[in-house]
């Protein structure tokens, strides 16, 4: 499968601020790959999507697929919509996942296939994908159910 063109990325993520620093990440999402920038010189993972390594100031930064392993660092349940015209049907979860690649490297997502009461700080989770309005997005589920 060929990589989507810039135009295809802009069209697919019509409601996202695509720029020169993050377009590779979104191209990866279209192919079902979660890419995070990594420094070629010192190995530091860099997030959000920036072109410079904050550890060694190298510009040699490569979007790199992560293992998808992580832990639930912190989470909340959003009980009320910001838009009064679109009330939430059920509480919406938001969860910061600390990726296994590096302490403090976190990706905001959701934990699926898990009852709300079973969520716990630092629980191990693994990457999965969910479909919303015809687009695939990263999500996480309790580890062990990764192939369930």
């Amino acid at each position: 499968m060929s990589e989507p063109s810039d135009d295809e990325v802009f069209a697919h993520f019509h409601d996202v601020r695509i720029d020169h620093d993050n377009i590779a990440h979104y191209r990866g999402l279209m192919a079902g790959r979660l890419l995070i920038n990594r420094c070629d010189a010192c190995g530091t993972w860099i997030y959000p999507h920036r072109p410079l390594c904050p550890q060694c100031l190298s510009w040699n930064v490569t979007p790199t697929q992560v293992s998808g392993k992580g832990r639930l660092y912190m989470y909340t349940f959003i009980m009320q919509s910001r838009d009064p015209g679109k009330p939430l049907r059920e509480p919406m979860q938001a969860a910061a996942i600390e990726l296994a690649e590096q302490p403090g490297l976190r990706y905001l997502s959701r934990v699926v296939n898990c009852p709300a009461a079973a969520l716990a700080h630092d629980m191990p989770v693994a990457l999965t994908w969910i479909e919303e309005n015809g687009r695939l997005w990263p999500a996480f589920q309790p580890e062990g159910d990764a192939h369930g």
Binding site: H14, V16, M74, T76, R82, A95, A96, L108, S109, P138
Partner: peptide, 30 residues
């Protein structure tokens, strides 16, 4: 998306906590 905050909480859920209040609730729990 030129305004302050860019595309906070719009197309990509992963950007929902860019300059957002919601993470304060998660930090409270933590």
């Amino acid at each position: 998306y030129g305004d302050v905050g860019g595309d906070v909480g719009l197309g990509d859920f992963a950007k929902r906590w860019v300059h957002s209040g919601e993470p304060y609730a998660a930090m409270m729990r933590r």
